[in-house]
Design a binder for these strands. Sequence first.
DNA 1: AAATATAATTAACAGTGTTAATATTTTAAA
DNA 2: TTTAAAATATTAACACTGTTAATTATATTT
Lengths: 214, 214
Amino acid sequence: MSETNTKNKRLKHKENLRKKILEVAKELFLKHGYDSISIRKIADKIGISPTTIYLYYKDKSDVIYALHQEGFKMLATQFAMLRNVDEPFERLKAMGRSYIEFALENRDFYELMFIMREPIAFVNKNYACEWEEGGAAFEALLVTVADCKSRGYFKQADLHAMSLYIWATIHGICSLKLQGHLDHVVSAHFPEKEHQLNLEKAFDTLVLILRSIQ
Amino acid sequence: MSETNTKNKRLKHKENLRKKILEVAKELFLKHGYDSISIRKIADKIGISPTTIYLYYKDKSDVIYALHQEGFKMLATQFAMLRNVDEPFERLKAMGRSYIEFALENRDFYELMFIMREPIAFVNKNYACEWEEGGAAFEALLVTVADCKSRGYFKQADLHAMSLYIWATIHGICSLKLQGHLDHVVSAHFPEKEHQLNLEKAFDTLVLILRSIQ
DNA sequence: AAATATAATTAACAGTGTTAATATTTTAAA
DNA sequence: TTTAAAATATTAACACTGTTAATTATATTT
């Protein structure tokens, strides 16, 4: 009885400290960016020794991968709210807007999830399996595109290719925006234009095009 | 006479060492990736002291920015070969293929040029102007899209928005491919498909769509 | 040849991730 | 309850990183 009790306490403590490490890592990440996530800084903030962290995470990229997973949970939560949009093309548009909104409001997380190589390199070398969270998000897109097709949209295109294409386009828009390329290049050629609108205009163009190929 | 001569010699020596530093940095970059570009490693390879590099480049991000510029020269060279393609839509397709080819054959350079934040942060903080090389590449796209429009393509869409959209789409395809997301996510859902084709299929979808909205 | 620029170096600072050896604390058995 | 064992945490150290200030060496000019 008391054995299992103490065991549970230890397990709970382990879990708590593991969570605490992730929490502090997230705090550093959101406050001062990716580069200032440091094992030593995390340890200092918690009040433990840097090496203790290695008892809870394999290495630094393990911590970063945990952060990566956090981000996908956030995105999944946002996507889940769109399930009640019945008309598939409307849902597709809403997903696009939601994705862009996520990218703009969680820039660092988006970078970690879709731009940086480190987290996916970690999962490749350690788990040797696939990328569950990302796969789930892509599945949501696939289902919606399939629904669109069943209602007469995108007749000429392959489901697989079409989904990939849509994701690539919206990711491209977000990626260029976040890295500053969008405003930078465009302002050089269109100094009079309002930069904030570039992203919206690119998205509207996608919607326009998708509608026109119905 | 002899004064200017010795002055020239010194200037030449300065230029040569500056070039040598960049050359070695490029070598390290291409052989072992971005992360193994280190001031100390560059210095060791040349046989000079690490601090000497600071007499030729402001700091590490200055070296990396120089590498960044190298990449844009390479891309410009590749684009220049397409000027003789007369039919604008054919030229647009060729540019897209050329861009993708560049990304696949110079993965590290592409990452440095369009994905990483460091070089553009450097130019922002130091030159306070714009991003010439990138601007030139975008201008080439703009001109081609304008030519397409003048021949009846993309009637409904704005030149500006359309160009941005095309760039974003192709960049998105390249970006997802290079970071491994493309194959990773898709293979989870389509294990039987050939991964190499994902990129081509996404590009073909773009071309199909662009043609259909003529 | 001496004075003066220029160029390059050494030494040091303040960081980084990570490992091996050691100490401490907690749990289980005698 | 005391002792052996297991789990947990720490210190010290290694091998790196970019970068700066002070110093030395080299080349140019007076």
